[in-house]
Design a protein around this nucleic acid. Structure first.
Lengths: 159, 159
DNA sequence: GTAAATAGGACCAATCGGGTCCCCTTTGAA
DNA sequence: TTCAAAGGGGACCCGATTGGTCCTATTTAC
């Protein structure tokens, strides 16, 4: 289906939330439990996503009491491709592209061997041209006034 | 990893093989076992791919003895996106894009709800700009893409 | 010193996709 | 007329990947 993983989706939501709450570069930090509360995503999952984003340098984690996370760059400076790479790994549509030889037993007679590169490049370019600001931008419809006050329990029970 | 399925890879290989062996529009047909032999892909898998491609109208299957498959269009007139849709289903990076409501319990507080559309569109555009001829390399034997075939476009969201 | 919070890794379960096999239908050829 | 070759359609099973959870170590404010 050419889908990207849910983790990537969560990552975008979490980073958008960080930006929204002022946890930008050199700004205030926000804790993983707090983000989980605000986004409605389970807390261990939020922690996992933040760890991955931290390893990629997209967020900065401050340890210890009063610690938390904040963005290292404004959303407009973060291409979507970077988030995908951070969470899902390298962007390559087929296994035989970057892995070199081995694994593809039809290597000898494969007619399209090594020809997926332009495809991968096209995808990467398309994804690099979109920043998180484009995704998190102005509220799509009926911006919720205070989503930080919304109780996830209520959402679960509502529908 | 944003990978596309192996089946799609096989589909490209098989279609390239069809073109290479002259099984183009109104040309000779080639059998599934023969294609399996030529490509090194397991025969049941080749048959499965050809069925999917046939349902999408990308290849034409002739039944009965002396039957087989042939392309309905030259490779240059087949955008990669169509093959992906035929084999993998609609191109949509996230589940919450086209499915409407249901499934995403954080729908109410999701900050990026409905914002994946430009991403999907960018991907689709990138994939539509690449034809199988680009993947299969230079025209094998004096059968270049014929641009007189008007763009049949494109049922990306069909299914 | 203690509590709060991140860092890192291991672990389990479920979903999805790859691959195979089955039987039916069609149709050219003997 | 009969047979065999080939496609059409679907069901099925196994494996891999992913999503999600938990535990422990480390750091730091109070």
């Amino acid at each position: 289906m050419l889908r990207l993983s849910k983790l990537t989706d969560y990552a975008v939501v979490v980073m958008a939330r960080l930006a929204r709450d002022g946890a930008g570069p050199e700004g205030q930090v926000q804790t993983a439990p707090g983000l989980a509360m605000a986004t409605g995503i389970a807390e261990p999952t939020v922690a996992k996503v933040l760890k991955l984003l931290g390893q990629a340098g997209l967020v900065e984690g401050l340890r210890g009491a009063r610690g938390g996370y904040r963005l290292t760059r404004p959303l407009g400076a973060v291409p979507l491709s970077e988030v995908i790479v951070a969470v899902d790994g390298p962007i390559a549509l087929t296994a035989c592209v970057d892995g070199g030889s081995g694994g593809c037993e039809a290597e000898r007679i494969c007619a399209v061997r090594g020809r997926w590169d332009p495809v991968n490049r096209a995808i990467r370019d398309a994804l690099s041209g979109i920043t998180l600001a484009d995704l998190a931008g102005p509220a799509p419809r009926s911006a919720p006034a205070r989503p930080d006050q919304a109780a996830p329990e209520a959402v679960l029970l509502a529908e």
